[in-house]
Structure formats: structure tokens, C-alpha cells
């Protein structure tokens, strides 16, 4: 089936209807979540009891809005901390690893490339438990042998960030590699001929060229970290990131404050998406 090939009218119509239905299916759960954030009821369900912003700004029980809910605000701060750390580490290691695989030939390169991809093939839950077991055993050993309490290696935000970094670094590497591959090496050589040191050539010529990929991978890393659940669940300590706080509430059943948080997250993602589109545009402009 192609636009250039005539098809029976009902086939075309049925196909279009299917596509339309599909996009309704994609949208409905999100619309439902968003709409109930504004329902003036204690439960996120029908009947509709009128419009309210209490689930965002409400300050008194039972209508405690998102901006007055301590557990949720703390979860948000924890998630932001973890996401910033994970993003910084992933983009840094992603950049050096992209250079490693695009610029160098070395023994066992094929094997190393497979190992670099491995975190995408290992289920997130298993990444989580393996890091949990490993770090706890080190902490236990340090405690037994020297009596040192290595709190950083106990379940907590640092381990959560490490767990997320373990696979987000792969994604950053892939994104940055694919742009580095298209880079015209003669530009770097020109800089070297003009007297720049290899390091200066990379900083002044190559990295600016990579900027869109760096920004893009940073946004993806941030989003993936913020949204991560499977790995995080295994490594979380007493300080829970937002997804874990929300999960616990969701299991118990909650007021529409969760809908308000969801709307807040949707807006945040939309903002990130906008930044990413602008960064890609900027990059295209610079490349031309």
C-alpha cells in the first residue's frame, strides 16, 4: 500500500481509523492522569466534583497539595540530586568512551565493545542487585576487618546514582559516538597544523562539534535517571527518590496529589524536550 497505488476506499478509511485509534490509545492514560489532577475530590476518579488547584497548592489536610507534601518534595530533591550526578558521570564517561572506540585500535576491541553494550542487555533489576550485593560485601568486609563503617556503600542515593550510571553511560556513549563518527578529521588536522596542541585541537574544534550530541545525551541521561525505577528500587535506602515515593503511595491508593505530581513531571519533560529540539536545531545550524 502506497499513496501512489490506488486502494479501495474502505481499506484506506479503515487504515486511517486504525492509526487515529492508536494515537487515542497512546494519549488516553496520560489525559486521564492529567485531568484528575484538577478534580475537587479526595480520590482520582469520577464523579467530577469541580475544578480545583488544591492538589498543587493546598496546604491543609486532607487536601495537601504537591508543594506542601514534604515526602514528595524530598523525593523530588533526591531525584534531582541523583539525576545531576548520573548525568554528569554518564556524559563524561560516554565522551571518553566514544573517543576510545572511534579513535583507537587496540587488542580485544571487539570484546570491549561487547562489554560496553552489555549493560543494555542485563535487566535493570539484576544490575541493581549485583551492585547492592557487591558494595554491601565490601562494606561488611571493611567493617569486619578494620571496624570502618563505609556508609556510602550501603543502600542510598550514591548507590542509586551508581546503578543508574551503569547503563546510562552506555546510552551516552552510543549517542556521542554516532556524532563523532561523522566528524571530519581534517578539521582537527588543520588546527594541529596551525600550531594547536592535540588537546587544544580537541577542546576548540572537536568538542564544539560534538556539543549537540553532548547536550542531547545529557538530556536523555537526565530523563532516564529521573524516571528510572527497576534499578533504583533495589538500591534505595531511607532517602527515596520521587519514583519510589510515588510507587509506595500508588500501591496504597492515594489522593489526586499523585496526579498533580504527574502533571508537574509532564511539564518538566516537555521543557526538556523543547530544550533538546532547540539544541539539535542549533547544532544543525553550526554544522552547516
Amino acid at each position: 500500500m502506497l499513496p501512489s497505488i490506488p486502494a479501495p476506499r474502505f481499506v484506506t478509511f479503515a487504515y486511517r481509523a486504525y492509526v487515529a485509534l492508536f494515537f487515542v490509545y497512546l494519549a488516553v492514560p496520560l489525559v486521564v492522569v492529567a485531568v484528575f489532577a484538577f478534580n475537587d475530590s479526595l480520590y482520582p476518579s469520577l464523579p467530577w466534583k469541580g475544578f480545583t488547584l488544591d492538589w498543587f497548592f493546598g496546604a491543609s489536610a486532607p487536601k495537601i497539595g504537591l508543594f506542601h507534601d514534604r515526602a514528595i518534595l524530598r523525593g523530588l530533591v533526591n531525584s534531582l540530586l541523583v539525576a545531576f550526578a548520573t548525568t554528569a558521570a554518564s556524559v563524561l564517561v560516554g565522551t571518553t568512551t566514544a573517543f576510545l572506540f572511534e579513535r583507537y585500535d587496540f587488542r580485544f576491541k571487539g570484546l570491549c565493545y561487547m562489554l560496553m553494550l552489555a549493560p543494555l542487555v542485563i535487566p535493570g533489576v539484576i544490575l541493581g542487585i549485583s551492585i547492592l550485593a557487591f558494595s554491601s560485601q565490601i562494606a561488611n568486609a571493611a567493617d569486619d576487618a578494620f571496624g570502618i563503617e563505609l556508609n556510602a556503600l550501603r543502600p542510598g542515593l550514591l548507590l542509586v546514582a551508581l546503578g543508574q550510571f551503569s547503563f546510562i553511560a552506555t546510552i551516552a556513549t552510543l549517542v556521542i559516538s554516532s556524532r563523532l563518527r561523522k566528524f571530519d578529521r581534517s578539521l582537527e588536522e588543520a588546527a594541529l597544523n596551525l600550531g594547536a596542541s592535540p588537546f587544544m585541537a580537541i577542546v576548540t574544534v572537536t568538542l564544539p562539534y560534538l556539543a549537540p550530541a553532548l547536550i542531547g545525551s545529557a538530556l536523555v541521561a537526565f530523563l532516564m535517571s529521573f524516571e528510572n525505577f527497576n534499578t533504583t528500587l533495589m538500591l534505595v535506602g531511607s532517602d527515596a527518590p520521587l519514583t519510589i515515593t510515588m510507587f509506595d503511595r500508588m500501591k496504597q491508593g492515594s489522593t489526586p496529589v499523585l496526579n498533580a505530581v504527574s502533571v508537574f513531571l509532564m511539564l518538566g519533560s516537555a521543557l526538556l524536550g523543547l530544550v533538546s529540539v532547540m539544541a539539535q536545531r542549533g547544532g544543525r545550524g553550526a554544522a552547516e
Binding site: 492514560p29 482520582p44 524516571e227 519514583t243 510515588m246 500508588m250 504527574s262 513531571l265 509532564m266
Partner: peptide
Amino acid sequence: SCLLPFWVSELVRVFGWMLILRETGL
């Protein structure tokens, strides 16, 4: 629009289905 829902956390997407499918749901 295909990509759009995936900018939102899996948790929120599942929450949407819970609101639709549960006993008091839509």
C-alpha cells in the same frame, strides 16, 4: 506523538491505566 508518551515516566503511564481499569475507574 509516538515518542511523546515516553517522555513521561513509566510510573505515570501505569498510573493512567490503573485509573482507567480499576473498580472505581473510568
